[in-house]
Amino acid sequence: RKWEEIAERLREEFNINPEEAREAVEKAGGNEEEARRIVKKRL
């Protein structure tokens, strides 16, 4: 699934746990840019 690939990239890029990465992607509706913004806000 594409969402899992996005979550994996976010996890590696921001050094967050898989659960946090998945939550961000879900919140963003699968949009990678939006997920990235969500993760950055949390850091």
Rank of each mutant, 00 (worst) to 15 (best):
R9Y: 04
R36D: 00
R9C: 05
I38P: 00
E20S: 06
N15W: 07
A21H: 01
E32L: 10
F14A: 02
R11P: 01
K41S: 11
R42M: 15
A7T: 07
K40T: 11
I16L: 09
V39R: 02
E19A: 11
V25K: 00
E8H: 09
E4A: 14
K40R: 15
G30W: 03
E20W: 15
A7K: 03
K27T: 11
I6Q: 03
R9G: 05
E26W: 11
E26D: 08
R1W: 08
E5A: 07
E12S: 14
R11Y: 06
R11M: 12
R22T: 08
R42P: 03
E23G: 07
I6T: 04
A7H: 03
E20D: 11
G30H: 03
G29R: 14
G29K: 12
E19W: 14
R36S: 03
R36W: 05
L43P: 06
E8F: 11
R1K: 13
E13I: 07
A21Q: 00
A28R: 01
E33L: 11
A24C: 05
R11G: 07
K40I: 15
I6D: 01
N31H: 08
V39N: 01
E23S: 12
R22H: 09
N31F: 06
N31S: 09
P18M: 14
R42D: 08
P18V: 13
G29A: 13
A24P: 00
N17Y: 08
I38C: 08
E12V: 15
E13L: 07
G30T: 01
V25E: 00
E4C: 07
E34P: 01
F14C: 02
R36G: 03
G29H: 13
R37Q: 10
G30M: 03
E12N: 14
G30V: 02
E13D: 07
N15R: 09
A7D: 02
E33T: 09
W3T: 04
V25I: 10
N17G: 13
R37C: 09
R1E: 12
N17S: 14
I38E: 05
E4M: 09
N15A: 10
E12A: 15
E8R: 15
I6G: 01
K41V: 09
E32G: 03
A24N: 02
R42H: 15
E32I: 12
E32K: 03
R11Q: 12
K40P: 02
V25T: 05
F14I: 01
A28W: 01
E12L: 15
A35S: 04
R11V: 13
E32Q: 06
E23I: 11
R42N: 15
L10I: 10
E13G: 03
R36K: 06
R42V: 13
E23N: 11
N15Q: 12
I6F: 03
F14S: 02
E26S: 11
E23W: 15
E8W: 10
L10W: 01
A28T: 05
K27R: 12
N31W: 06
E33Q: 12
R11N: 04
I6K: 03
E5C: 10
I6N: 01
I16Y: 02
R11S: 09
R42Y: 15
R42S: 15
N17I: 06
A28H: 02
A21S: 06
W3I: 05
E26P: 00
E33P: 06
R36P: 00
A21P: 00
A28N: 02
K40E: 15
E32V: 08
R37G: 06
R9F: 04
A24R: 01
R9H: 06
A24S: 05
E13T: 05
E23D: 14
E8V: 11
E20Q: 08
E4K: 11
G29V: 09
E8P: 01
K2E: 12
E32A: 08
R22F: 12
E23P: 01
R11C: 03
A35T: 02
K27H: 10
E4N: 09
G29L: 12
N17E: 12
E5M: 07
E34A: 09
A28L: 01
A28Q: 02
E5W: 07
E13V: 05
A35G: 02
V25L: 10
N17M: 10
V25G: 01
A7P: 01
V39G: 01
I38L: 14
I38W: 07
A28K: 01
E20A: 08
W3Q: 05
K27V: 10
K40G: 07
E34I: 12
V25R: 00
L10K: 00
V25W: 03
E33K: 08
A21R: 00
G30I: 02
